[in-house]
Design a protein around this nucleic acid. Sequence first.
DNA 1: ATTTATTTGTAGTCACTATTACAAAATACC
DNA 2: GGTATTTTGTAATAGTGACTACAAATAAAT
Lengths: 196, 196
Amino acid sequence: MTTNKSRTRGRPRRFDPEAAVATAQRLFHARGYDAVSVADVTDALGINPPSFYAAFGSKVGLYQRVLDHWTDTEAIPLADILRADVPVATALAAMLEDAARRYASDPAAGGCLVLEGTRCTDDGAREAALTLNLGAESFIRDYIAARHPEAAEEAADFVSTTMSGLSAKARAGYDLPRLLATARLAGRVLAQILPA
Amino acid sequence: MTTNKSRTRGRPRRFDPEAAVATAQRLFHARGYDAVSVADVTDALGINPPSFYAAFGSKVGLYQRVLDHWTDTEAIPLADILRADVPVATALAAMLEDAARRYASDPAAGGCLVLEGTRCTDDGAREAALTLNLGAESFIRDYIAARHPEAAEEAADFVSTTMSGLSAKARAGYDLPRLLATARLAGRVLAQILPA
DNA sequence: ATTTATTTGTAGTCACTATTACAAAATACC
DNA sequence: GGTATTTTGTAATAGTGACTACAAATAAAT
């Protein structure tokens, strides 16, 4: 499927772009977009700046690739969790628990890659992360609105705020049990305002 | 009270350090520690770098002064809100509402100065903010533990996480009604797990 | 008026940032 | 084997970050 027409001649690549994206994802997740320099990335990959810019174009270019890769591999599977055949509050509670587990899963890289990315100083990177996050929030709000239109905004805001808080606390070092306890408390409210 | 022994001779100051701290506070709150350069501060104050370093020592030195000033003027008055003569859940709910109001009060500077400061890349500034935040969290946890020891950690974590989320969402542009609605939903859980 | 203490303005240092010019090196094609 | 094509390594560029050396300027104290 991948026609590598432009790689038939010349020196072969010394690094696999796919693996490079995975490595970069680890760096960005652990230290945040701002704190990771291009030199950090090239050092970690064992390549030099020209190879980096030939492959990714720019730092935000790499970040975009990282976000795409993350969406395909580590993002919360909203479409699977927010199902039409379970009560809305139950599904949302499951989503919050899933978030807590993911945010705490890697102690070296706390929190959500995207939520943390929405807070970086670089305009381009921040908007890329914001776009992804807005999409997820719309998905959640629409899911709620389908069965509880009058409570959709309130509930969606509550859920989003809780997830932002969970990500921040995961980054601050809270372990899984503590995050999970908070997620479950938040789930209680949802059961109240979104009766099955 | 202020013995300005060392200012008896020489050229008088062209700027008031107190007012300078207030101006710096606005800058840091609006754009965050990382995004504000020393040049931004000196430009805003109409002074030159040597005057800045003579007055504050360093960028984190100024930030410390800003945090102190903030503690005295704009911090949530925990000691007033978390009273012994009201139910714990009621007081905590009032605190969350107060946080929502403060975080949304200045549309140009969303969120909590300290909570946002705990996420900057500079080690010194981050730890200064973290220290302040840890103190506040301990105060809250102790307040809960006095009457609900078994639920203290769970409730304190939930409150802290909610506040982090509120600050993040305020920074993302949520207006007061939305923040307030979320704060009130969080208050409901507290009423459940901390019965009067 | 002269001395003295202090701040100011100019200009610079040094480290680091993202990004790129250029030429040597290495491979596939003919 | 020769050539075309592409990547690589070296090194540089332009910009910005925090911070400072130094001498002129100023005003109080004498």
